[in-house]
Write a protein that binds this DNA or RNA. Structure first.
Lengths: 111, 111
DNA sequence: GCTCTGATTCGACAGTTCTCTATAAATTCG
DNA sequence: CGAATTTATAGAGAACTGTCGAATCAGAGC
């Protein structure tokens, strides 16, 4: 890839350059809202690897359009993908995205 | 700790409840800005474990107050801590915070 | 085709955020 | 003390965000 921020990609190894920061920040930003964090968690932990929007909406005291908006933010951040099957729309996680973020946050300190 | 979201804490294991989402979202939100992502990276990767604000400011095309604002956001999110020694203020990472976030993002899928 | 249901888009509004300038606080040094 | 330096706070303005209600789009089934 030829980047200058280390192959491990960890934030703690060396300073992130501006271009990479611009690329990664939107992912963190997408998770920076409690509703989206729960949505992603529901999607990521769903049995079968995907979940219907109809099963997400009821878990929040929010209208459909608002849930739809948050799902769009997650989608545009590259964290999830969706596809329609008949009447319903199913969302699934993009595992590589979470992996990238997780790698960025590695401290090298055992938890 | 007696939580209901699993000891591993991973987002992918089971859905995050609202209270935990409220607790964790601000950390992600704090990293959701490219300037703060770079600031945290500079702080986290600094030799000696800490860095003087005077060494951060020059790396951005932003005024001092703006950098100060972003550092405050990182501090209030619990990601960094600061202390003044003489004229200068030094910031250092709180490693446990990054570890918590990293654990949340674990997919169980080897990178 | 018409209607019903599920999901998204549109338009609006209150609240928040990012940035700046100006000012203030903390500390050192003469 | 007074001046210089470094960092933080206060206040303001433009831009963005989260939420809603209304309208629209996509399919299923009569």
């Amino acid at each position: 890839m030829g980047n200058s921020a280390g192959e491990s990609g960890s934030l703690t190894r060396e300073p992130l350059d501006a271009a990479r920061a611009d690329a990664f920040a939107p992912m963190f930003k997408a998770l920076g809202d409690p509703v989206r964090l729960r949505l992603l968690s529901m999607i990521a932990s769903a049995r079968g690897g995907e979940v219907c929007v109809c099963d997400l909406t009821g878990e929040f005291h929010l209208t459909g359009p608002t849930i739809s908006h948050h799902l769009k933010v997650l989608r545009e951040a590259g964290l999830v993908d969706s596809d329609r099957r008949g009447t319903w729309v199913y969302y699934r996680m993009i595992p590589a995205a979470l992996a990238v973020m997780g790698t960025l946050l590695e401290t090298g300190i055992p938890v």
